[in-house]
Amino acid sequence: MRPDDRKYLETHEWAKVTGDIALIGLTDFAIHELCSGNEGDLVYCDLPETGRTLEVGETFGEIESVKAVADLSSPVEGEVIEVNEAIEDHLEILSSDPWEQGWMVKIKLTKKSMDHLIDAETYESMLAKQS
């Protein structure tokens, strides 16, 4: 079971909300799909500048492996106030700890409702249907 302290977008981004701040990351499933379980295959992750405002579903960056490039879609609406700089040089963080150290951006929410996102259980059953 994936962490139920956060909510998910169907495109595999997660959002963990504390007060009016959300941490955004990518699920273990998406990371695994991108790199076939070989963390060395992740080659690049492009993240936004701080200060940028995002809408739900807006592309805020991209992640690239040797076989594919995928857009990163924002699960929330708000302003980017911090970017996880550690990822740039250590992409392996994304596969070793996608839920905590592997957060990508910190967003100050302008809309707090997370009703448009799915919970961990629904996300799990979505993955089960896909495989």
Binding site: G40, Y44, V66
Partner: peptide, 8 residues
């Protein structure tokens, strides 16, 4: 070949 390293 290590394609990941070739890129990085």
């Amino acid at each position: 070949l290590d394609e990941g390293r070739a890129v990085k």
